[in-house]
Design a protein around this nucleic acid. Structure first.
Lengths: 347, 347
DNA sequence: AAATGCTCGTGAAATGTTTCACAAGTCGAC
DNA sequence: GTCGACTTGTGAAACATTTCACGAGCATTT
């Protein structure tokens, strides 16, 4: 159990009886080294179990072969899936990926950002909380390639970013419900101030207007968070309405809310979709797995991640020649049992 | 948009009119520097926006201030939660955490392990696929502190590890069902070869034996994977049984399977828990969020992560003085609607 | 006034890698 | 046998940091 210092190129060179420059050549430009020499070196490498020191390479090169994705919350499958997309592209480009989660805490976000700065990373993908933090702007000023994921920051709108059109998503969901004959629709979501919620609500209203219906077709049930518990509460409030005015369909700003609403309906013996239809947003894995599979607006999460990573690599490669771009994807409605049509209308 | 070389201690020293050693002292041993000098240096640091180069520090120190958690699949909330526990401890100890996911692919696992080796990390937490891989053993031989998480490898049983007693978990689940009067119980899970599945099944059998019942109370429905689709399939198979022999309760080796079974029951109009009771395993967030909240065996995931990180830090600190330890936690049964008792027995 | 002890600051050395200008060697052509 | 062209290998320099033995400056003691 002897713990020894990791062997260095120098050790390899000594063992192979060549200069240290030659070892480096074998590692980086093998074709410039005579076969006999090369194999001597390779053997020495194998015998010593030599592994290149990434810190030393980074120090020499000025920046590392690593990028980072700083997400809001990796325990949320939405971000985890984005991470997978990023990872795929990173791997293709021989870049290591460093995943971090700020867990929705500003302090943690700042900490990670400064860690990233210290690490001299190659680039950063980020879904941030505070886009005006000093640390973030310091990173940008340093010239670190950065791509914003899913949220497009106000003052940094000109920088590279990827996102999904949430207005379109809200429109898709509510248009679907209208097409299925619903004339009393609830929007469940909040806090309204969250850009995603604002946009999805705007899309809902747009759908109603486009259909030539009155605005009061839509009732808004604002929640204090986007989780299951709030969904249940909203469901209870909804059922508390006088029968006459009770919505026949619910569009939730995300799937967690929708699952909460669904749970409340099931517990209260209200049948879905017969009495109340439900549409969620995000199409997380558990939307399809729900007891009554959930109709949901799917965001191309994996694609989002891939596109973001590709933008980042382009930016890192081209340097100042790179032109910032904003990529916007279109969501897709996945219809499942929770909103199957009740009364047919000619389509 | 001038991209400049990051300022170094040397630049700071020049600006502050001191030697570079002094800057280093301000950074690492501020109390040894006269206040007037120190503030000159601090001002220079602020003006230049100096940030320490972690790669250079690592090179000098021999190993970095980072640890890694290589998980099977970070998109699985189970591992994400473990990650959070680890992160908490890492932060307390001023260590950076590097999250990686092998996505259940051996190739990726090996790739990450060699990346970790190159990075000269401070330590590694890992839930691996292949515990006999050359790369992993190379890491161990190098003396890298390693703690195994959730899976205890055969030949490496003497090393540090944390886990949960799955036999106990299986026992808890099935004992609960027996207590509730069930005398025909299905075990759904597979492939049986997976240690976790083996243990949970063994625990199930143990419960039956302890209760003094015949072994044939338990019917095993083996699945090819631990996901929702396989759960649905198992549910269908279960319903295909002749009424007389159909189990009145199902214990699933994880919650995904249980959600699949629940979904199939709902779709086929079989009421839960009246006709069939269901118990899952892991108590993922969506277990409580299901239309019919799921009874499940909870593993202390967060604690698991914390304990693992603490073991790792101890190992890294004490070096050869450290004694490897295996920490085993006890699972807990969370009873919810999906298995509420049908026939009361005196308890 | 010399010796001692203390505080504060210095600068060279070392960490592992890559690069690059150059040297050594070989071969062919004149 | 000298020159040039080409192949192959060399070793010093640079990257940013930390450490450590040492020295300068100063006050106190003998």
């Amino acid at each position: 159990m002897t713990v020894v210092r990791a062997p260095s190129v120098k050790d390899v060179a000594r063992r192979a009886g060549v200069s240290l420059g030659t070892v480096s050549n074998v590692l980086n430009r093998p074709e410039t080294v005579r076969v006999s020499t090369r194999s001597k070196v390779e053997q020495a490498i194998a015998e010593l179990g030599f592994v290149r020191s990434e810190p030393a390479r980074t120090l020499r090169a000025g920046s590392s072969r690593m990028i980072a994705y700083l997400a809001l919350d990796l325990a949320n499958p939405f971000f985890a899936d984005i991470g997978r997309g990023i990872e795929e592209v990173a791997r293709e480009n021989h870049l290591g990926l460093f995943l971090c989660s700020s867990n929705n805490e500003e302090a943690r976000e700042v900490e990670y950002l400064s860690l990233i700065m210290q690490q001299r990373l190659h680039g950063l993908l980020v879904t941030a909380i505070d886009y005006e933090s000093e640390t973030l702007h310091k990173l940008l000023k340093r010239g670190l390639p950065v791509v914003f994921v899913d949220r497009t920051p106000g003052t940094l709108r000109h920088r590279c970013s990827v996102g999904v059109d949430d207005i379109e998503g809200g429109d898709l969901a509510v248009s679907h419900l209208i097409d299925n004959g619903h004339r009393a629709v609830a929007f469940v979501g909040g806090p309204i101030a969250i850009p995603q919620v604002t946009d999805r609500l705007a899309g809902s209203r747009q759908a109603i207007e486009t259909a030539g219906l009155e605005a009061d077709v839509l009732t808004v049930f604002e929640t204090t968070a986007l989780n299951v518990a709030e969904g249940r509460r909203a469901g209870a409030r909804l059922l508390g309405q006088p029968k006459r005015r009770r919505p026949t369909a619910v569009f939730c700003a995300n799937d967690l809310l929708a699952l909460g609403v669904l749970q409340e309906m099931t517990l209260q013996g209200v049948s879905v979709p017969e009495e109340v239809a439900i549409v969620g947003y995000d199409d997380i894995e558990f939307a399809a797995a729900a007891a009554i599979p959930l109709t949901s607006v799917r965001q191309p999460r994996h694609l989002l991640g891939k596109a973001a990573a590709e933008l980042l690599i382009e930016e890192a490669l081209l340097g100042s020649a790179h032109e910032h771009r904003q990529v916007q994807y279109t969501p897709e409605l996945i219809v499942r049992a929770s909103s199957r049509r009740r009364s047919r209308r000619v389509s």
